[in-house]
Design a protein around this nucleic acid. Structure first.
Length: 193
DNA sequence: CGCCAGATTGACT
DNA sequence: GTCAATCTGGCGG
């Protein structure tokens, strides 16, 4: 499978979030290979977005406005959340990976998560990072090369009629535009509020 | 070092 | 459905 190239992420985060549905995340964990298909994403912008970490300044803000195609990992409520920096020229933004469908290495993921139910395995941003053993180590590491053990590959092309758009989940202040995307009818999508 | 907000989860009624 | 434990990250002192 082809690795998704860096220029894929040099676009509006909304567009990238939509096109990431169906893409494959690959993680080499020791000698085992874990793989899953993205089924739910959310787009975040820079300082103009009330829900963006860019508003708080610091390293996360600089990362959001920095090189595209790198992972942005940040901790909240005892979970690690996995984002990929994506934005146009001179802008800031990222895509949060919220849920995925296990494809390869499900047994290892179950051990990492301590659950047996496939539907609960990666159906939430914190659950997903736990199942893939993603932590702060990957912060600012590019996901358009295989060098760091975490990368994205081209997968299923999802047609527009199978894409559902809603408002983002859990944010205290959202933008007017709905920025959450998920694959219609997929059982691995996280629960709504 | 202390303060505080928050893009969550899972245990429990 | 309700609820609170828990900890990262930014910032002020």
């Amino acid at each position: 499978m082809a690795v998704i190239p860096k220029n894929f992420y040099m676009r509006d985060p909304e567009q990238v979030a939509r096109d990431l549905l169906g893409a494959i995340i690959v993680r080499t964990y020791g000698s085992t290979r874990l793989a899953c298909m993205i089924v739910e994403t959310e787009a975040y912008y820079g300082v103009e977005d009330p829900a963006s970490r860019a508003r708080r300044g610091g390293d996360l803000a600089r990362t959001l406005y920095g090189d595209v195609g790198v992972a942005l990992i940040y901790g909240i409520h005892r979970q690690w959340l996995f984002n990929i920096v994506a934005h146009g020229e001179g802008s800031g933004g990222a895509v949060l990976i919220r849920a995925a469908e296990p494809i390869e290495g499900a047994e290892v993921m179950m051990r990492l998560r301590r659950v047996r139910d496939l539907r609960n395995l990666m159906s939430g941003p914190g659950r997903l990072t736990r199942a893939l053993a993603i932590d702060k180590y990957f912060h600012k590491k590019p996901v358009y090369v295989r060098d760091y053990g975490l990368w994205l590959e081209c997968g299923l092309r999802i047609s527009d009629e199978d894409v559902v758009r809603t408002h983002r989940i859990g944010v205290t202040a959202d933008l007017e535009k709905p920025l959450r995307f998920y694959i219609r009818g997929n059982p691995h999508v996280s629960r709504s509020k």
